[in-house]
Design a protein around this nucleic acid. Structure first.
Lengths: 248, 248
DNA sequence: CGGGTATTTGCAGGTTTTTGCGATAATAAT
DNA sequence: ATTATTATCGCAAAAACCTGCAAATACCCG
């Protein structure tokens, strides 16, 4: 591989992941550490990246990350990290949209080999950054509010698949009322997602606990895992644990 | 072998593989390294390729989708502005992916009322910002390279629609060979897109003119508009105009 | 046709670039 | 404080490059 090609590769990685590890590059590009270090040094000299111990960071990383407006971002990152433990090589996974899911995708292990179905274009774009992940984007009407596809066509396609795990965010969870939501279409969608997967993990920040909305999505018995930013032994999670949910 | 033949050979290799090694060329063309180097030097002087230590790279090959590093961004914005004139209220429009299309979407009139079908998640997300535009994202396998959906499912869905206008980028255009490409799947996709729309506009920067690749996508007669960053009366566009294409 | 000119090509040589290795220093982790 | 990881430096071999030169070929024009 030509030096310029390596440089391009590194810059692509940096632009995609905002970071890059020396050790990863050694593996991916099949050259010695010294070569990678010299590459990073040169790119750094050209002001294209920010070299640090262990690898390099994107120049724009800090600015673009700091002024992010994601609500309760830290909590969501915590949730995301817990969700990772459910994901193993070779799995077929279905995901919804939402910032929590996107945070999770950003933290997947670099070499995860898996097949993802998703109704979120943003999730698809993030997933596409992983070399060994196959991505299938379920198409249909595109919702401006939730930035996911929905409608009959999506439901049709979802009903044809059967995956190991479904990861979804929710609007409300309640110990006896289960999952509830306010939008009819999204509701139908989530029902279908549930029935298309062997196990389901619900990702939600604690403020959505113990709330009931108008439309019923599913009973707690239909889901397997509940992932919040709280400690698993937190008092407010006890009622859910009693219902048989596994708390992460 | 004549020098011009070698040059053509090199350029074909470059267009095909986006790269070429000096050592490979020595073997393939049976000439000395010096000759190859001189060839590459001359082609580089003519701005046809990008010479590097060990070989040469394609000029246009920058597959990064990061906003800040879009290749030839100004030209693409110019193309985008011209394409706008084809779009009217109430239309049903099908778009492909690519940075040029995204630039165009960013410049749509704020209150445009239209229905867009697209195979590009990034285009869908951009389109969703317009209140009066309805967006249908065609789903299927997601291509990491081109950031679009493709494959049988996409083709099936495309074959069910019939829109007023199709906007697509291309890899190569030639006055007699028409549109050509290198990837089989993308090829099938583009053919289907063409047959799903009454009129088709091809968006391409001028350096893709007069190039022929391996796989035929369509004859010039199948498309309606050709949009480049050049003035419509530019000399290099004459052959296309002669074929009946409307130049913007 | 023939002599002069220009182009092309390969070679010899010396120069530069690239790369990996070993030894040593710096930095993070425990 | 000790250990493990990561960086740095100098070096040497290999590869790629450049320059000038000369032979071969093609070209031009009287």
């Amino acid at each position: 591989m030509l030096k310029k090609e390596r440089h391009d590769f590194v810059m692509r990685q940096i632009n995609l992941h905002n970071r890059v590890l020396t050790s990863d590059l050694v593996q991916l590009l099949n050259v010695s550490e010294d070569t990678i270090r010299r590459d990073l040094q040169e790119l750094s000299d050209d002001n294209l990246l920010y070299k640090v111990h262990g690898g390099a960071l994107s120049k724009s990383y800090h600015s673009s990350f700091d002024d992010s407006t994601v609500y309760a971002k830290d909590a969501k990152i915590g949730i995301a990290k817990k969700a990772l433990s459910l994901i193993k090589d070779g799995m077929f996974i279905l995901t919804g949209g939402g910032t929590t899911i996107i945070e999770m995708v950003k933290q997947l292990p670099e070499n995860l080999q898996a097949t993802f179905f998703t109704i979120s274009p943003l999730v698809a774009v993030e997933l596409a950054k992983y070399p060994k992940i196959e991505v299938i984007l379920i198409g249909g009407l595109f919702s401006k509010n939730s930035q996911i596809t929905y409608g009959g066509q999506v439901i049709n396609q979802l009903s044809e698949i059967n995956v190991d795990l479904c990861l979804m965010g929710v609007s409300a969870v309640h110990p006896t009322d289960g999952l509830t939501d306010t939008d009819w279409e999204i509701n139908q969608l989530k029902k279908t997602m549930l029935s298309s997967s062997k196990k389901t993990a619900v990702l939600c920040i604690s403020e959505k606990l113990n709330i009931t909305l108008r439309l019923k999505v599913a009973a707690l018995g239909q889901i397997s895992y509940l992932i919040t930013e709280l400690e698993p032994n937190d008092e407010s999670l006890k009622p859910y644990q009693a219902k048989g949910l596994q708390i992460l």
